[in-house]
Amino acid sequence: MNFVILACALFALGLYGVMSRRDIIGVLASVEVMLGSGTVLLVGLSSSMTAASGVRPDPGALGAIGVLIIVVAAAEAAVGLAVLVSVARILHTTQVDGLMEVKG
């Protein structure tokens, strides 16, 4: 099953981006990569499970869970981007190294 390795590699790539990027926008985009690869892994693994083992989920339920994941990720992106714009306006920087205070 090559897609498992591929999705894991994409997740690790996103993780590398989260840790190596210095810009908040880069970190947010890398988080989106991690979320996307995790969703692909979930959907791929669940829809490929064999019916004989008795663990195959209802495809409709899988679609519902996938939509819920997309909703959560969209909410995360909205709040994250609002924080990005707010930080850029107040601190005049988007570098994560410049964010040293909890209280802005």
Binding site: G17, S20, R21, R22, D23, I25, G26, L28, A29, A77, A78, L81, L84, V85, A88, R89, H92, T93, T94, Q95
Partner: peptide
Amino acid sequence: LVLFAIMLVHRAEGADPALTSRH
């Protein structure tokens, strides 16, 4: 939304659009 955020940020910040990273 990401595109809007980038435009807003770079308008407010006036910064170089190049991204930095520490490999």
